[in-house]
């Protein structure tokens, strides 16, 4: 399909959705507009709210907090996942011993940890970072573990025949393989870092997008909730776009498979 046509259709979906939303909340065509706007807010009011946040500048502060939390969660979770993943993959005994515990920890719904982290680390950013870390860590850990395990035996034998010692194998073979697996899960892990931050804020904090949404919700300010959601959506799309750029840069050596 033509790119321009596709883009037009994509925009059309948004326009139609918002138009329907607007019609439902301002006319009697689809029921009582008062009831509908109580539950769904009104698009114009939502837009006005976002504009006022931007004009006041308060939104940047909250976005900055959420971004900081997500970035820290991603960095700490990734480093931990790479180190432990590597270590486990190279020490099968260790991996075998800890296997049930790793599985159990990964199976636990991480949201239940939020109150504990709040108790341990307070209501500042670190309890949110901790929640994000528990999400990011396992994704990176499993990918790195797989990446080290799945190095092609031919590549490995070849590297050894080329005279590589253990340290050189690590640097030129195992690490690139593990990182390629990690990078291929970048979208998921970055996404989860943001989820950890927002959910943590939602459950108890004094700043951030999650806080903003929670505050609006607690006073039945549905327009505020939707405005927060819209900002969050744009934020996540932006982050995802940056991840795609980074990924294309880091994985140039990979054959292009069908785009997702």
């Amino acid at each position: 399909m033509n790119r321009a046509v596709l883009l037009t259709l994509q925009i059309l979906v948004a326009v139609v959705t918002i138009a329907l939303w607007h019609v439902a909340t301002t006319t009697t065509l689809l029921g009582n507009p008062k009831t509908i706007s109580f539950f769904f807010g009104e698009p114009i009011l939502v837009a006005e709210r976002i504009v006022s946040w931007v004009q006041e500048g308060s939104i940047w502060y909250h976005l900055g907090i959420t971004l900081t939390e997500a970035a820290l969660a991603f960095a700490i979770g990734s480093i931990g996942g790479v180190v432990i993943g590597f270590w486990f993959a190279r020490r099968p005994l260790l991996a075998a011993v800890f296997d049930p515990y790793v599985k159990a920890a990964n199976a636990l719904p991480r949201v239940v940890l939020a109150p504990i982290f709040a108790l341990w680390l307070g209501l500042g950013i670190w309890s949110k970072v901790a929640l994000g870390v528990t999400l990011v860590f396992f994704i990176v850990f499993f990918n790195v573990y797989q990446g080290v395990k799945e190095v092609s035996p031919a590549v490995l034998s070849n590297a050894r025949m080329l005279g590589m010692n253990g340290r050189q194998l690590l640097r030129h073979v195992y690490l690139p393989s593990a990182l390629s697996w990690m990078f291929s899960s970048l979208h998921t892990s970055v996404g989860f870092a943001v989820v950890g931050a927002v959910v943590g804020e939602y459950l108890g904090s004094a700043a951030g997008l999650g806080y903003l949404i929670h505050e609006a919700e607690s006073v039945f300010d549905v327009n505020g909730v939707f405005a927060g959601m819209v900002v969050l959506t744009f934020f996540v799309i932006l982050v995802d776009w940056i991840v795609t750029l980074v990924e294309n840069r880091l994985l140039v050596w990979r054959p292009k498979t069908s785009a997702i």
């Binding site: 590549v155 070849n158 073979v173 390629s180």
Partner: peptide
Amino acid sequence: AHAGYLFQQDSLMPWK
């Protein structure tokens, strides 16, 4: 260490 080995399978490092 005296030997060079050309393998049947693809054995180049794909990331280089």
